[in-house]
Amino acid sequence: MSDNDKYTLEANVRTEFGKGAARRTRRAGLIPAVMYGHGSDPMHLTLPGHETFLALKDNPNALLTLVVDGESQLALSKDVQRDPVRRTIDHVDLVQVRRGEKVSVEIAVHIEGESAPDTIHTLEMQTLQVLAEATNIPEYVVANIDGLEEGHVLRAGDLPLPAGVESEEDPDTVVVLITIPRVSEEDLEADTEDAEEPALVGEPEGETDEGGESEG
């Protein structure tokens, strides 16, 4: 489980908008954000850059305690926009939540163990959609493939979930496949042709041109 309650951030209400205002905000070491939820009007905020980066670094479903004008508000990160090159955070979308409230989130699928010798696994689903309490969201769900033989399939309904967490996926949805890698006929033919192709040999010294005598 993620220690969701450890991220407390001082947030300020934004009064300037637009690209220019956002650039100025980021130059000041802050991150523009907007918070929705519970029927209230969107709240435009600025968040402290370094602390927010640390909070969202390894957990896309981080639960944040925002202190706005002296009042605390729980918020769940829903969308994090990053600079494609520097990977710094450009903007954050947040949704208000309450303790005990259940939210729908995507959590990562982590592979554990090794399948049987000579087999490989294919992860068909990188994430799983689940319903969980906002203050108790798992960081990931485990797909244990230890010792599984060729042809074995792990489905969404096979993955164990913590108490209080429900999968929103079709239980028959394939998550992991165990197979033995096979070489296709095209690859075999290509390998055979490469092996049979004769090596280029240089023209022998002293060879005559069109039947003439060699130069002496």
Rank of each mutant, 00 (worst) to 15 (best):
A156P: 08
P138S: 06
A156V: 11
V174D: 07
R155H: 12
E133G: 01
N144T: 09
L148I: 08
H152C: 03
D172A: 15
A134S: 14
V153D: 06
P138T: 08
E149M: 12
V176H: 05
A156W: 06
L159C: 09
E169S: 12
G151T: 11
A163E: 15
D158A: 10
L128G: 00
T122A: 13
A132H: 01
N136P: 00
E168V: 00
N144Y: 02
H152V: 11
Y140G: 00
I145Y: 00
L128N: 00
L148E: 03
Q126L: 13
A163G: 05
V176M: 05
L123N: 01
N136Q: 14
A132I: 04
V176W: 03
T122W: 00
V141N: 01
T127M: 02
E168N: 14
L123K: 12
Q126I: 02
P160Y: 10
V176K: 02
D170I: 07
E169A: 15
D146F: 07
Q126F: 10
L131M: 14
L177E: 11
S167C: 11
T179A: 15
L154C: 10
Q129R: 14
L161R: 10
Y140K: 07
V174W: 09
A156K: 04
L148Q: 07
I178Y: 07
T122Y: 03
A134I: 04
A143E: 04
S167F: 04
I137A: 01
E139V: 03
Y140E: 03
T173Y: 01
P171W: 13
N136R: 15
E149L: 13
A132V: 06
V142M: 12
A143H: 06
P162Y: 04
E166V: 09
N136I: 01
V165Y: 04
S167E: 09
V153L: 15
Q129I: 08
Y140C: 01
I137K: 02
A134H: 07
V142K: 11
I180K: 15
S167P: 09
L159I: 15
V130K: 00
L159G: 09
V141S: 04
V141Q: 02
N144G: 07
P160K: 13
L161W: 15
A163Q: 13
G147I: 03
T135F: 00
S167R: 05
L128I: 10
A134W: 11
P160V: 12
T127G: 05
T122K: 10
Y140L: 06
Y140W: 06
P160I: 10
L177Y: 03
D146P: 00
D146W: 06
P171V: 10
V142C: 05
I178H: 09
D170R: 09
V141Y: 02
I145K: 00
D158H: 14
V176C: 06
H152T: 15
A156T: 10
N144F: 04
L161V: 12
L161S: 08
M125Q: 15
L177R: 14
G164N: 08
D170V: 08
L148R: 10
G157N: 10
T135A: 10
I145Q: 01
V175K: 01
Y140R: 06
D146E: 15
V175E: 01
